[in-house]
């Protein structure tokens, strides 16, 4: 790979300074960035290794009841955190459904948010891809695109965001805390990701030098804890990215849904919050008919970006499944196969 400078700052301020130079890139667990460097798709001039920034490794309950998770908390540690398991169980389930044990031990919260699409043409430096360089074109459009987006895409890019973790984050409206040359700010996860435009490929709201320091899980999402699930469809039982996935969180009282939160994974360049679907559920009975209506609403605008029309139907179905599972209640114990379609049902409880 291309030779690069390597720096390991001791403070966030130093890190920001170092990363503000064009060509600089933060390095956390390295599980995504290193792979991209090895194939020659990412060629940073300098790597700013942030793994010594101990301030970013804490999980702290806040006064307002929210939970602040440092950007360098490892995926494995977060998934086993007591507060997460009791208050935000879908987050733990999503994390444990992703990648493998070894990868989760290395991968960080910030890196997970910032991971790049898994589109094969993006991984191939010889293919045309607007994520290599704006204007290069998109070889996926006429290529192997069975796993690509069905929502929010343009011909600029049809890739999907691959993260599992981000799907329940989107559903509950988590906030991303960033720090940077212009100071610190908080961005809702909805606004954090940008969908592709007519020229601009998808990306994030981060500017050069900006670092994710934490994410904040809102306190009001805790009321979903008894009914929160993440379900993920994949090509093998474990260790595979989602074909489609769904996070569903329900607050039910007096036999009716009082509040619902829904997001889909594997369908768009962002973790796709389905507000229209949530709206259909407010005040509805928690039954299959309501769930199907919600799923139809969520996918109403979906269209295939290639040889992937089946994903629309599968996304509908996975959402119905996740809603049913949520309505059945969060399992008291993490299922053996977290997030798996095979973890749903009695086995899970």
């Amino acid at each position: 790979m291309k030779a690069f400078d390597y720096q390991r700052p001791e403070t966030i301020a130093e890190a920001i300074k170092a990363a503000s130079k064009p060509g600089a890139s933060y390095y956390a667990g390295g599980t995504n960035l290193l792979d991209l460097m090895k194939v020659g798709v990412r060629t940073p001039d300098s790597l700013i290794d942030i793994t010594r920034l101990d301030d970013l490794k804490r999980i702290e309950p806040q006064k307002d009841g929210s939970l602040r998770i440092g950007a360098l908390v490892r995926n494995s540690d977060l998934a086993r955190n007591v507060d997460i398991l009791s208050d935000y169980p879908a987050i733990a389930e999503a994390l444990l459904s992703g990648a493998s044990g070894q990868l989760r031990n290395s991968a960080t919260v910030g890196g997970n948010l910032m991971q790049q699409p898994r589109c094969a043409y993006f991984y191939d430096p010889h293919s045309a891809c607007n994520l290599h360089e704006v204007g290069e074109g998109c070889d996926a459009l006429e290529g192997e695109n069975g796993k690509h987006a069905v929502l929010g895409w343009t011909k600029t890019c049809i890739a999907v965001h691959p993260s599992d973790f981000c799907v329940p984050l989107a559903a509950m409206g988590a906030r991303v805390v960033v720090d940077g040359p212009d100071g610190s700010r908080e961005i809702s996860i909805d606004e954090f990701y940008t969908l592709p435009g007519s020229v601009q490929p998808p990306g994030s709201a981060l500017k050069q030098g900006e670092i994710i320091t934490a994410i904040i899980l809102p306190s009001d999402a805790k009321r979903f804890a008894p009914r929160a699930r993440y379900i993920k469809l994949r090509d093998r039982t474990s260790y595979a990215f989602a074909i489609v996935s769904a996070a569903a969180m329900l607050h039910i009282g007096d036999g009716r849904i009082k509040d619902a939160r829904i997001a889909l994974g594997g369908v768009a360049a962002n973790p796709w919050r389905a507000r229209e679907a949530e709206d259909t559920l407010n005040g509805a009975e928690a039954n299959e008919a309501s769930f199907k209506k919600a799923a139809d609403a969520a996918l109403a605008d979906a269209k295939p970006s290639g040889d992937n029309a089946h994903k629309i139907e599968l996304a509908r179905r996975i959402l119905v499944r996740a809603l049913k599972a949520a309505a059945d209640g969060t399992p008291p114990k993490m299922p053996d196969l977290p997030g798996s379609v095979f973890a749903v049902g009695k086995e899970a409880r």
Partner: peptide, 25 residues
């Protein structure tokens, strides 16, 4: 093993893309 029909290049030439069974399978 998936190859791009136009370029002939392999598209899933790593273990993230070329799936074989894992223990859970």
């Amino acid at each position: 093993g998936i190859h791009d029909k136009r370029s002939g290049r392999p598209l899933n030439n790593d273990f993230a893309g070329y799936h074989i069974p894992v223990l859970a399978d």
